[in-house]
Amino acid sequence: MMLDKLQLLGQKTLDIFARTGRGGAFLLHILYVLPATILRPALVIRQLYYVGVQTLVIIVVAGLFVGMVMALQSYIVLVDFGAEESISLMVALSIMRELGPVFTGLLFAGRAGSALTAEIGLMKSTEQLSGMEMMAVDPMKYVIAPRFLAGVISVPLLTAIFMAVAILGGYFVAVELLQLYDGFFWSQLQNKVDFYEDLLNGMIKSVVFGFVIVWIAVFEGHDCLPTSEGLGQATTRTVVHGSLAVLGLDFILTAIMFGV
């Protein structure tokens, strides 16, 4: 009985290593064919629409509410210290450093990541990828790499939009609802927010998150079992692994960037 469990543990560990190895080799293959994909911008632009533009609504709505909630919470804390004019600073720093990249990453994994996995998995199970291979069209160049590139481009752009909308949401609550002076709101932002420390670090995080989420999404789609159950499991894995990767990497990147 004990030996069986040990054997199962060993098998699971080997499976994890095998999958990680396949995922690594898959990424190298994508990077190898990426130059050929860049030379066909029409394929990438089409995917930018599906992956990026169609995720825009959820990003804008989420950004607006996150910014509004952050402003309200900040006001509740800061007003006790008579420092409510710093609302904008608190909103902007938390959004730019953490919430912008992390929220966008999580929402992207749930909306676009799962859609990418499902689409590629379905193409595999309906033999469309095999069909392309037999037509001498490399699916890595035609299907996988354009989606990968579009995802990697989309996430930082969506993050920037999330940040801008969240700050506008914070402005609406602070200035329009709580009647704070809008000069304080913008001057605090202008004086205290650092381009490199705050904005650039947040954008670097978003690039890393985008890269990892899209890698997981396209790999899971390509590696899934070509059955309805296999497709469902792959889609779930994309959301779970993608979200956990975002949260884990956020901790590591924060520790590196802010030198704690």
Binding site: T126, M134, M135
Partner: peptide, 18 residues
């Protein structure tokens, strides 16, 4: 290149690009 020159394949499902 060999497939392009030599082979065509008809899959059971048709494998049309949807």
């Amino acid at each position: 290149e060999f497939r392009q020159r030599m082979m065509g394949m008809l899959f059971q499902s048709g494998a049309l690009l949807t």
